[in-house]
Design a protein around this nucleic acid. Structure first.
Length: 568
RNA sequence: GGCCCCAUCGUCUAGCCAGGUCUAGGACGCCAGGUUCUCAUCCUGGAAACCGGGGUUCGAAUCCCCGUGGGGUCACCA
């Protein structure tokens, strides 16, 4: 309907990185707004003074922009500056600001009215008292609900006087004890009995609103029509609905989405990464930090304290030194690990939503882009069941996406990634980068894999490390042995001109035919001689990358190695 | 523990709302073959699920109830 545009919002709390679950929530909010021709807005819920940070807010905004999730209203962000740039956000309707910390006057105005009407009251009791009561209730195995009798609440004038005197206090909702019924777009009808909602806090002693109060006031003020959020918020809904009723607000449409767990079936959390690393350190029996990762003191402190978390940089350095793969949990993690933003969007959309369409070959349609989501996303097809995050499948999707790219496109993307995450590779490979990219592309599941696959091209010629197994299998065995072919092969290769994959390949094939041995044997001996292992991209590409001089040097060095006398 | 949600292959799911066409389809992973100079691709084939018990019905993966299991939530965090 033209007169009732859909308005959705994503409202992250800037206390850390954007979690993959949060990214999905944002994506669904975005997709739904797009599909309905509505607006998607972003609001930063920075009401926890101790934990919120500007850097975190900035990071979350950038992660969203990177995923291609752009908001119509919200904080301004200059995104993609390197690629022409675009500005996201703004306040066309004048409903901002979009940082809750800047909206105190709005909340205070609402609170004042509630205090006057007696629908809220100031509570001057200390949090210590409350904690004690809560503890007693818990020990007695009772549910603790803060709900004083009418007589215990101070007269309005008295409240006013003590507030004006500057006494520390919280403001609580005088909660009507009515049942609440919500028809959730995902879960259907959900009922909450009368008395489930207690006199929860609306405004904290520091003057900042609580989450519940901020959400309800802002959603109303900003005209939010549809609230899409994780199921962990389901039990917050009756609170919000009660508040809305007290304030005479409209109730938005709710849609609670299933949760995403890690592959172990536990909630995905940042601690996982530290846990994984800590376990690896312990099984490896490491007692000191690997060189260049961190100092001994922080290492020891981190190792002995399960709750302690390393800085991202330290953790990554440690994992790198130990050749350890850390589980990704934030968008930022996936980005550094070399996943493509469009693949992440595709994959997380599938965690809880399904288009329910078939491809022409009868298989289920599950590969799609953001534009598809913007055209087909709907609430009705959001599932109810929690899902596990299957990294193998994500990897497969990413691999397929890379496989579908042209060499040029891949080179462009990989170069962009390297510029941020692996500048050393760019410096080392120089002008041969396009060649490397082409060779490596079909073998990469992530952009980070390129370094491993093409590692042979990134080392010095005399730094090749020979894998004993490969040497034994491909150089020492057989008659004639690979080793014995190498010298003559070198001579043949020296005459190759121009030095490019096709010509190299042809020469090797001719050599094999003339020597009367299989192409496989020749190729493998050469591969081992040049890369040190029996695995690499196609032989022509591999040799082309190393360069003629490099290949001849490596072949020569390989032939000289006494270590190949058979004892390996 | 109270309240609330959920339940199809190992994992993500289609099918369920409008019961029969389901000897339950697909994807990832796994296993076995084939193509290939290795690897990765690619091709072919395979194993693999309706949580249990009651109903309703001629007929239930689909509807209802109970049980069990899993999850969420119980802050002056969001």
């Amino acid at each position: 309907m033209a007169d009732s545009p859909v308005i959705t919002r994503f409202a992250p709390s800037p206390t850390g990185h954007l979690h993959i679950g949060g990214a999905r929530t944002a994506l669904f909010c975005w997709a739904f707004a797009r599909r309905m021709g509505g607006r998607f807005l972003l609001r930063v819920e920075d009401t926890d003074q101790a934990r919120s940070s500007e850097a975190s807010a900035r990071g979350i905004l950038e992660d969203l922009a990177w995923l291609g999730i752009d908001w119509d209203e919200g904080p301004l962000l200059e995104a993609g500056r390197s690629e022409g740039g675009r500005a996201i956000g703004g306040d066309p309707r004048g409903v901002g600001p979009f940082f809750q910390s800047q909206r105190r006057a709005v909340y205070d105005g609402v609170i004042d009215g509630m205090l006057e009407r007696g629908s809220a009251y100031a509570d001057f009791s200390s949090s210590a008292e409350l904690d004690a009561r809560r503890k007693r209730a818990t020990e007695a195995n009772e549910t603790f609900r803060y709900r004083p009798d009418d007589g215990e609440i101070l007269p309005v004038a008295e409240q006013r006087r003590r507030i004006d005197a500057g006494e520390s206090h919280v403001v609580r909702l005088r909660s009507p004890q009515d049942p609440v019924r919500v028809v959730d777009e995902v879960l259907g009808e959900v009922k909450f009995g009368a008395g489930e909602v207690d006199d929860f806090v609306l405004r904290k002693p520091d003057g900042f609103p609580t989450y519940h109060f901020g959400v309800v006031v802002d959603d109303e003020t900003m005209g939010v029509t549809h609230v899409l959020r994780g199921q962990e918020h389901l039990m917050n809904t009756p609170r919000h609905v009660v508040l809305q009723r007290v304030l005479g607000y409209r109730m938005p449409v709710y849609a609670h989405m299933p949760l995403i767990f890690n592959d172990k079936g536990a909630k995905m959390s940042k601690r996982e990464r530290d846990q994984t690393a800590r376990e690896a350190v312990k099984t490896a029996g490491l007692t000191a930090p690997p060189p260049g990762t961190m100092d001994e003191h922080s290492f020891g402190a981190w190792l002995s304290d399960k709750k302690r978390q390393l800085e991202t940089r330290q953790l990554e350095a440690l994992a790198g030194a130990m050749h350890l793969r850390l589980p990704e949990v934030s968008v930022d993690d996936f980005r550094r690990a070399g996943y493509l933003p469009e693949v992440i969007c595709n994959f997380i959309a599938l965690l809880g939503w399904n288009p329910g369409m078939k491809n022409e070959d009868g298989t289920d349609l599950e590969k799609f882009d953001r534009d598809f989501l913007a055209r087909h996303f709907d609430l009705a097809r959001i599932g109810k069941t929690n899902s596990r995050f299957d990294r193998r499948k994500l990897e497969s999707f990413n691999h397929d996406a890379i496989g579908a790219m042209s060499d040029d496109e891949f080179a462009r993307r990989w170069r962009g990634w390297c510029a941020v995450h692996d500048p050393g590779l760019l410096a080392k490979i120089g002008a041969r980068f396009p060649l490397l990219a082409a060779a490596v592309r079909p073998r990469c599941a992530t952009l980070a894999d390129g370094r491993d696959v093409g590692g042979f091209a990134l080392i010095d010629d005399d730094a090749v490390v020979y894998d004993p197994g490969a040497v034994k299998k491909h150089l020492l065995k057989g008659e004639p042995s690979g080793l014995s072919l190498l010298a003559r092969l070198g001579e043949a290769l020296a005459r190759v001109e121009p030095w490019e994959p096709g010509a190299i390949q042809a020469t090797v094939e001719r050599f094999a035919a003339e020597a009367g041995v299989g192409i496989g044997q020749v190729a493998q001996s050469l591969r081992v001689a040049v890369t040190g292992t029996g695995v690499s991209p196609g032989l022509g590409e591999t040799l082309a990358l190393v360069g003629k001089a490099g290949v001849l040097r490596r072949v020569g060095r390989c032939g000289e190695r006494a270590a190949f006398s058979g004892r390996a």
